[in-house]
Design a binder for these strands. Structure first.
Ligand SMILES: [Mn+2]
Ligand SMILES: [Mn+2]
Ligand SMILES: [Mn+2]
Ligand SMILES: [Mn+2]
Lengths: 218, 218
DNA sequence: ATAAAAATTTAGATAAATCTAAAAAAGTTT
DNA sequence: AAACTTTTTTAGATTTATCTAAATTTTTAT
């Protein structure tokens, strides 16, 4: 049985490795987990012992088949609990991550599956991230950023890249929600800000915002 | 912030102290928590430092006002999660305790309250134990055992004393559920077994069983 | 009241997870 | 290529929770 700490390391290595798919370096993991590189080295060596990661000194780590399976299981639990917290307990999407960080570590052979059925098999968490199925299959949608949409085109907001509380609260204030259809009206070359039509009103959003919103074409 | 271990000790001291209300001794706590008396002493001294228990060497411990408040909060969380697991995720009442042992330690200022509202403010857990309210008030009903009911009287099963999985499974098999009205038909002096009418059929149950069923008079 | 038994505490050891500081390796600049 | 910088690992210390074995206190029995 893995400790919460070990599970958190696996999840961190998984999410950090997603973009580059190469091995993940010590410092990055330390940053992500708010710990020291020396602690990361210790834990990595322990996980390598258990054959959950492949580790070569000074070269970083990547997950083994088994390690990846476990990591995805944690991600699955995390996201399903987030759905529970928003859909059933009516939490706002900026409040659920912390609690899900704890709930994802509850150990039970049957709990996730029951939870998933209770929630009626959601496909995405409140931030638009896909929920792995019970076999660990995960639907990666291609990530189009709102900032890359040409003027005069409409699209649907389907996810956030940054899911810090502050960004999510900003989106609430701007009345931007997942599932919303928005139309890019104009693009300002100077600072790459754009004007969009959202919910029948025009608003200007900075590049920093539009770079952190995933959309799909209609 | 208390560790899970500290919380478990407080809860154990609380539940063990309920019947006698005097101080709880080291060995009993060790038994309950499946640990060694020396470990209990260590933890007790730590909790005494934090003023969560009153401790006198060789005399046992009892909870301070603050310690009791925390203990009841854990009990509240445990029982609400058990209701969630049975009512929402359709677990059987013999399967929920272990998972609730984990869920009771999730830290959040708002979660218990939201959960309680979602469950529509249940008054009892699946085993008939009362759920403390948000202020720590707890409705102690007087505990009448089925074994003490005279022949020819009817009563309602409202709780179990023993909530081990094996006892609960036995009750399932015998079709005895909480809320059921049962009538004591006859009592066998020899072994104190009784014959009851339950769900329109007569069954004989041993004293060991009837001593572990709480009832209320109609 | 003394002796024996049981309960409890203390002392010292161990394992997990973390840290700081120092050493070693890898990467970058001149 | 040598010097400098950054990254990573190692060594050793710390904290928490646990254990075993020994010492101490309390309780029970004679
Ligand atoms: Mn999250
Ligand atoms: Mn976590
Ligand atoms: Mn329980
Ligand atoms: Mn517990």
């Amino acid at each position: 049985m893995l400790s919460q700490t070990e599970e958190n390391y696996l999840k961190a290595i998984y999410t950090l490795g997603l973009s580059n798919s190469k091995s993940v370096n010590t410092t990055l993991i330390a940053q992500k987990l708010k710990t020291k590189p020396s602690s990361v080295t210790d834990m990595i060596q322990k996980l390598a012992e258990k054959e959950l990661v492949n580790y070569e000194k000074y070269k970083g780590v990547f997950l083994t088949f088994n390690g990846k399976k476990i990591a995805i299981e944690i991600v699955r639990k995390h996201r399903l609990w987030e759905v529970f917290l928003t859909n059933k307990l009516h939490y706002n999407w900026d409040e659920v991550h912390e609690i899900a960080e704890q709930l994802e570590h509850i150990k039970s052979d049957t709990l996730v599956g029951r939870l998933e059925a209770f929630l009626e098999f959601p496909k995405h968490d409140p931030h638009g991230d896909p929920i792995p199925d019970e076999h660990g299959n995960i639907a990666h949608h291609k990530k189009i950023m709102l900032s890359s949409i040409e003027p005069n085109r409409s699209c649907i907001v389907i996810g956030v890249k940054d899911s810090t509380s502050s960004f999510l609260k900003f989106l609430d204030k701007a009345n931007i929600q997942l599932g919303r259809t928005v139309k890019v009206i104009a693009k300002e070359e100077f600072d790459n800000s754009i004007i969009i039509e959202n919910n029948n009103s025009l608003i200007s959003i900075s590049n920093q915002i539009s770079k952190n919103l995933f959309v799909k074409n209609i």
